[in-house]
Simulated assay, not measured.
Amino acid sequence: MLNIKEIQEIIPHRYPFLLVDKIEELTPGEKAVGIKQVTFNEYFFAGHFPQEPVMPGVLIIEALAQVGAVALLSLDELKGKIAYFGGIQKAKFRDKVVPGDTLRLETIISKRKGPVGSGTAIAYVNDKIVTEAELTFFVK
């Protein structure tokens, strides 16, 4: 398991854009599973939406990408680099994420060639899929 400080040693994201609280499972270059505790204090709930706070889907995708970046950048040969989005395919938002939810973020890297990798990303709340997508990364 990686705590927040250990995550920050791997990826460059910082508050308010670091969207992963801990990594529960890690196989470098292949898979990572992270957790995001969604609280009412998140900055985006002030405007999305004040009458019914909902976590923006693009931020759930970003959280999944950060988990994928941890998986990729944990490889010795990629340490100290940055993983950028190369693409988002087949994104589906199946349910809303609200304050009090615990997001389980799972990203599996299925292909990797040189600096480019791609994989499947799925976000769960209470074992129910809320978001899924195919993500492509490139590392520089």
Rank of each mutant, 00 (worst) to 15 (best):
62 E>A: 13
64 L>G: 08
64 L>N: 12
66 Q>K: 06
71 A>V: 10
73 L>P: 07
73 L>W: 06
74 S>F: 09
75 L>E: 15
75 L>I: 08
75 L>F: 02
75 L>N: 07
75 L>C: 04
78 L>Y: 10
78 L>H: 13
80 G>D: 03
81 K>I: 00
82 I>C: 02
83 A>M: 06
83 A>G: 13
83 A>C: 08
83 A>W: 04
84 Y>W: 11
85 F>Y: 14
85 F>M: 09
85 F>G: 08
86 G>C: 04
86 G>A: 15
87 G>R: 14
87 G>C: 08
87 G>K: 12
87 G>S: 09
88 I>R: 05
88 I>M: 05
88 I>Y: 01
90 K>I: 00
90 K>Q: 11
92 K>Y: 03
92 K>C: 00
93 F>S: 03
99 P>H: 02
99 P>R: 07
102 T>M: 04
104 R>K: 15
105 L>Q: 11
105 L>P: 15
107 T>R: 02
108 I>V: 14
108 I>Y: 03
108 I>R: 13
112 R>T: 08
115 P>W: 05
115 P>M: 11
116 V>S: 10
118 S>K: 15
119 G>C: 06
120 T>A: 05
121 A>M: 09
121 A>D: 00
123 A>F: 07
125 V>A: 06
126 N>H: 05
126 N>Q: 13
127 D>K: 13
128 K>T: 14
128 K>C: 03
131 T>P: 01
131 T>Y: 05
131 T>D: 07
132 E>D: 14
136 T>E: 11
136 T>G: 03
138 F>N: 01
138 F>R: 09
138 F>V: 14
139 V>P: 10
139 V>F: 12
140 K>Q: 08
140 K>E: 07
